[in-house]
Write a protein that binds this DNA or RNA. Structure first.
Length: 325
DNA sequence: ATGGTTTTTACTGCGTC
DNA sequence: GACGCGGTAAAAACCAT
């Protein structure tokens, strides 16, 4: 077994460093209990500090290859090249082939050579335009990442969002639409597909595009890519509202129950899932004697109090007919 | 563009702390 | 008297056609 010495160049190390810092600064939250996530490099896992849920396992270790005993060794033994991320682009490394059919000495090329160079130019151009798309992609992915961490969405949602974005890019859905808009729409779709939906309001709060453009591009992307996104399940909003309002697990369970029986009664159809969820949480808090005002609920759910009132009446009725006490 | 549905806005009255 | 709650009417937003 031979130890192969590898050297990373300065620039790569730098970007690797800043990237890792950025990663560390992200506030991640556990999808189950909303607790803080802690990464455990030893076991290659990311776990929730509160409930111990393993959010991600078998991670790639981006650390140095061997143990290092002093600073110089540490530099030498860093991994080969920069870690592969979806965020990389070519850093101006693309090739340019001159248009003049001259060789390095300035002499004209043979016709055979000219043809060869022409073919090379064609291909090189193809790759370069691909690169420009990559740059565009990088920007979009950065944007997705920023919004996702602002919304506390887990890694897999970002992953899905970037896949959706890539597809949109491949299908030439971009012309006429802003990168921002499509990126935001991708994230919105991804969040819903992953069962951790964020409302349009929440998304547009962290995005640079307004709600109208977002809904328009979202619809467009969904239609063109043939994505199937079911209407969001009200229950998927419950845990977040509950934790935002500091309510008990009991209340959360109750809220789910209410929403469940409401679904059986067919109250759901046509109503906004967010409103239903908010009403469910409010009603549940009432039933478990925990104090929350309609106003507070309407704040965290960004829904009007009136809607909460209307929904929670319906909810209670439905639960009465479903399970008469 | 249109009409039907849902949500929001704004306002009012009631009870409690 | 401020606050939480419930109700209503009209306006606005949304969605399918």
């Amino acid at each position: 077994m031979t130890n192969i010495r590898t050297y990373t160049n300065e620039r790569e190390k730098e970007s690797e460093e800043t990237e890792r810092q950025e990663r560390a600064e992200e506030q991640e939250h556990c999808p189950e209990c909303g607790g803080r996530l802690v990464s455990d490099a030893e076991h290659a896992e990311t776990v929730c500090a509160d409930c111990g849920l393993v959010v991600e396992e078998d991670e790639i270790d981006r650390g140095p290859e061997w143990r290092a005993f002093d600073a110089a060794e540490k530099d030498e033994k860093s991994r080969v090249g920069a870690p592969t991320t979806n965020m990389m682009h070519d850093q101006g490394l693309s090739t340019n082939i001159g248009w003049q059919d001259k060789d390095a000495y300035g002499k004209a090329l043979s016709s055979r050579q000219r043809q060869k160079m022409q073919r090379l130019r064609t291909w090189n151009e193809r790759f370069r335009t691909r690169d420009s798309k990559e740059r565009n992609l990088k920007q979009a992915l950065g944007e997705i990442d920023r919004m996702a961490s602002a919304l506390g969405l887990p890694e897999n949602v970002r992953e899905t969002a970037s896949v959706i974005y890539r597809r949109a890019l491949e299908e030439d859905l971009l012309p006429g639409r802003s990168i921002e808009g499509v990126a935001t729409a991708s994230l919105y779709a991804a969040a819903r597909q992953a069962g951790t939906p964020r409302s349009l309001d929440e998304i547009s709060a962290v995005s640079r595009v307004d709600k109208m453009e977002l809904t328009r591009t979202y619809r467009y992307v969904i239609r063109e890519l043939g994505l199937e996104v079911q209407p969001a399940d009200p229950e998927s909003y419950v845990p977040r509202f509950v934790s935002d309002l500091d309510l008990s697990d009991e209340t959360e369970r109750m809220a789910r129950e209410l929403l469940d029986s409401a679904r059986k009664e067919g109250v759901h159809s046509g109503k906004s899932p967010v409103g239903l969820a908010a009403a469910g949480v409010y009603a549940a808090a009432l039933l478990t004697n925990e104090k929350v005002t309609q106003n507070e609920v309407s704040e965290v759910a960004s829904i009007s109090e009136v809607t909460i009132r209307n929904r929670y009446k319906e909810l209670l009725e439905a639960s009465d007919t479903a399970a008469p006490a």
